[in-house]
Amino acid sequence: MNRLVCSVCCGAACMLLLAGCSGWQSALDPKGPAAGELAWLIWFFTALCTVVWLLVMAVLILPLARRPAPVGDPLVLDAAAERGKMRIVVAALAATALILVGLTLLSYFANRTLAAIGSDAALTIRVTGHQWWWEVRYENDQPNRILTTANEIHIPAGEPVRLVVTSTDVIHSFWVPNLSGKLDLIPGHENVLDLKADKPGVYRGQCAEFCGAQHANMSTFIIAEPRPVFDAWLKDQLRPAAAPVSTEAQTGHDLFLKRPCVMCHKIGGTIAGGTVAPDLTHIASRRTLAAGTLAMSRGNLAAWIADPQGIKPGAHMPVVGLNGDELNAIVAYLEGLK
């Protein structure tokens, strides 16, 4: 019995040690000050809770080790022993209260630390949740430098960034565990999330509030880059879409504007001006398709356009019924939109 309990405890401890291993999208592998603060908090709470738990278990199990004594009269209680126990219980209660006060203060101060992260954020990004993708708008005082993109958020590494998050349909939640805790995107409300990535890198995030059929496939990537790389990226993204370079791509361009694609998507520099679906102006420069569902590749593009409902059932991208040549042409065009 005791051994079993021990081995369960050991197993649990081992698993916790392993916890740091899966780093991508893990709260335990912080890459920014907010997540760092929180990871510390998690470990501290966990350690403290483990100690408390072990103590309680010890008190529970130790009497079992004693030899069962003959059962006495259930109602005859030793008054002195009762008083002694009462003292112990009261002491334990006081200790509990003390720990709780400590933890409350700890979370209060952690909260203050988190609030201070973005106080000097130079970059404001507006993230709007849609079923089931993220619209990302880089705010700028000069309107023609406002950039709208989707699903992938580039940020300068080492700088605080302010995200203003909201939604136009249902409630979503923005969560990139490596960088920060989550915050809900709520229709009719605007929430502010400040985050900072210490080092360049790609951090995966995912919608954390159930938002319908494709809640599972609503991911995002935060790509932290050194400031110059970021600036270059921003500048590059502000260009209108690349012109098609091959005849096939040209055909694809024409088809794109003639077929249902044009009804929902935007490609800068063409008449395609949809806003209800992700902006495709530089789609080929992104890492993934369909809010992190598929890696960006020619094959995946074709697969996605040919049968989005097979890949992401319930998503708002319809099956449009293109023949093979049309599909290839459109893929060729989109592939060129770096």
Partner: peptide, 12 residues
Amino acid sequence: GVTSWPPDAWKI
């Protein structure tokens, strides 16, 4: 007429 608009918005 260009810079007081988001990119491309002035066209429409």
